[in-house]
Amino acid sequence: MDPENTAVDVLERRKRMAVLAGAAGDELRRLWRGACVAVEAIPVRGPETGLATVRGRIGGGGSPFNVGEVTVTRATVRLPDGRIGHAYAIGRDHEKARISATIDALCHDPVWASRLEAAVVAPLAAAQQAADTRKREETAATKVDFFTMVRGED
């Protein structure tokens, strides 16, 4: 762990990784190309696809049990200056993992972090949030409103 890694940094990094992992590959590629980043990331590991075993809990909150596997693709890259970046995401999109790992490596530098936040991460996060809101509202429209029938006069 980098000594300058504060809790806030970890939180930021985790949030960024969640947005990248949840992004559609094509959308990430489009924004990444738009950001015009000319940096040579050297692959250290992968991109490679493997499995993670998904766990649930008995009854929802009890002891863990295995539900099944999910495909996961990961990549680790090193920048010429030695910074390392990691990426993990559900699915089999190798290029997405490579780009995400490069972004992770670049974002160790706060200047890069704010630049890529604006150019790539924030638009992805906004799109995800909009999709979540839409889905939540569509679901909400199927909520049952119970009413009581009063019969007879009283």
Binding site: G50, A52, R136
Partner: peptide
């Protein structure tokens, strides 16, 4: 197909109370 892939590990147990509900 599953048997051709390496296993990276076990996820943390999912929290179904925090599910983004669709039904």
């Amino acid at each position: 197909y599953r048997t051709t892939l390496p296993r990276f590990g076990y996820t943390n147990p999912v929290d179904t109370a925090a599910m983004r509900i669709e039904r």
